[in-house]
Every structure is written in structure tokens, then in C-alpha cells.
Amino acid sequence: GSPGIQSFLPPGWEMRIAPNGRPFFIDHNTKTTTWEDPRLK
């Protein structure tokens, strides 16, 4: 199987799917959430 997208996120980050189907990202380091992919910064 191919590695999940989770493995490509920075340490402490998690990806979830919102009720509307959009992915969002949780930064457990700062306890914040964002719509922006942290890998694109």
C-alpha cells in the first residue's frame, strides 16, 4: 500500500476531514487548526 498523506505532514500535525468534505489541518504543537496545508508554506 502507499503511505498515507499523514506521513508527509510536519511533526505534531494531523489532517482531518471536515463535515463538508474539506480537509483541514490540526497543529497539536500550538493547539490550532487551519485550512492551509502546512507543507505549502
Rank of each mutant, 00 (worst) to 15 (best):
K41R: 11
A18C: 15
H28T: 09
F8Q: 15
G1M: 11
E36H: 14
M15D: 00
R39H: 04
W35A: 02
P11H: 11
P19W: 10
R39W: 07
N20G: 09
L40D: 15
W13Q: 00
G4R: 10
T30G: 07
K31F: 09
P38M: 03
L9W: 04
L40M: 11
I5H: 13
R22G: 02
D37R: 06
P10T: 02
I17Q: 06
P10M: 06
M15C: 11
W35E: 04
P19V: 08
G21L: 03
P38F: 01
N20Y: 03
W35T: 05
P10Q: 04
P38Q: 02
T32S: 08
R16A: 07
T34H: 08
I17G: 01
P3T: 14
D27N: 11
I26S: 01
G21K: 05
R22S: 07
N29K: 09
G1T: 13
L9R: 01
D37S: 04
N20M: 04
R16E: 04
D37E: 05
A18V: 03
F8W: 14
F25W: 11
K31E: 09
N20W: 08
S7M: 12
T33K: 12
A18Q: 05
R39C: 09
N20R: 02
T32K: 09
T30L: 06
F25Y: 11
N20E: 03
K31P: 03
N29F: 09
H28Y: 09
I5L: 13
Q6W: 02
F8T: 15
T30C: 08
E36Q: 14
P11W: 10
L9K: 01
W13T: 00
T32N: 07
I5S: 13
S2I: 11
P19L: 11
P3F: 11
S7A: 14
R39Y: 04
I5M: 13
I17N: 04
P38E: 01
R16K: 10
T34W: 07
L40E: 15
G12I: 01
K31H: 13
W13Y: 03
M15L: 07
I5C: 15
K31T: 07
F24I: 09
W13D: 00
D27W: 03
S7N: 14
F8N: 15
P3Y: 08
R39Q: 04
P11K: 12
P10D: 03
T34I: 05
K41W: 15
R16P: 00
E36R: 14
P38I: 04
P3Q: 12
G4A: 13
E14P: 00
P10F: 06
W35N: 04
S7Q: 13
E36P: 00
G21R: 04
M15I: 08
G21P: 11
F8E: 15
P3L: 14
D27S: 03
I26R: 02
P10Y: 06
W35F: 09
I5T: 13
M15E: 07
W13F: 04
R16D: 03
F8L: 13
W35D: 04
I26Y: 14
R16W: 06
F25H: 00
D37N: 03
N20L: 03
T33I: 15
T30Q: 06
K41T: 15
L9G: 01
F25K: 00
G1S: 12
W13G: 00
L9S: 01
I26H: 04
T33S: 10
G21C: 14
T33W: 15
P23T: 10
G12S: 03
